[in-house]
Design a binder for these strands. Structure first.
Length: 116
DNA sequence: AGGTTGACAAAGG
DNA sequence: GCCTTTGCCAACC
């Protein structure tokens, strides 16, 4: 029997999969859309997303930066993947959310997935 | 059962 | 604009 939090994780992954290539979303944004209690939970979910079919690399923090974690290699990998999708980093290692920020899923999608 | 940790974020200095 | 503090809450000792 799955815990309640499993449903939240499932929604987080489902929403993350909606981020199109060449765009990025923030942890807070995903949390809001997926109904997570706090952005921290999204980061926690991303830590386990590697083995799943989820584009975890399209999630960055509110400052448009790759969030530091215990595995530095993962950070480099994330930057590499993003650059391969055409996303450019500014000299201060930041992404312009204004240019590459995701607008969020369409309304019909939200309804179909019970997020409204 | 209780304290610590963390892939965040907003507010304050 | 950078650094620190504070709120956050499930996961993990």
């Amino acid at each position: 029997m799955a815990a309640k939090s499993d449903a939240v994780y499932a929604r987080i992954y489902r929403v993350t999969k909606e981020i199109p290539a060449g765009k990025v979303a923030t942890y807070g944004q995903i949390a809001r859309i997926a109904g997570a209690s706090t952005p921290r939970m999204v980061g926690y979910a991303m830590a386990g997303a590697g083995s799943k079919d989820v584009p975890w690399w399209r999630v960055v923090n509110a400052q448009g930066m790759i969030s530091p974690r215990n595995n530095p290699f993962s950070e480099l990998q994330q930057r590499d993947l993003l650059e391969h999708e055409g996303i450019t980093f500014k000299s201060n290692d930041r992404i312009s959310l204004k240019d590459y920020g995701w607008d969020g899923p369409e309304l019909p999608w939200l309804k179909e997935n019970g997020l409204i």
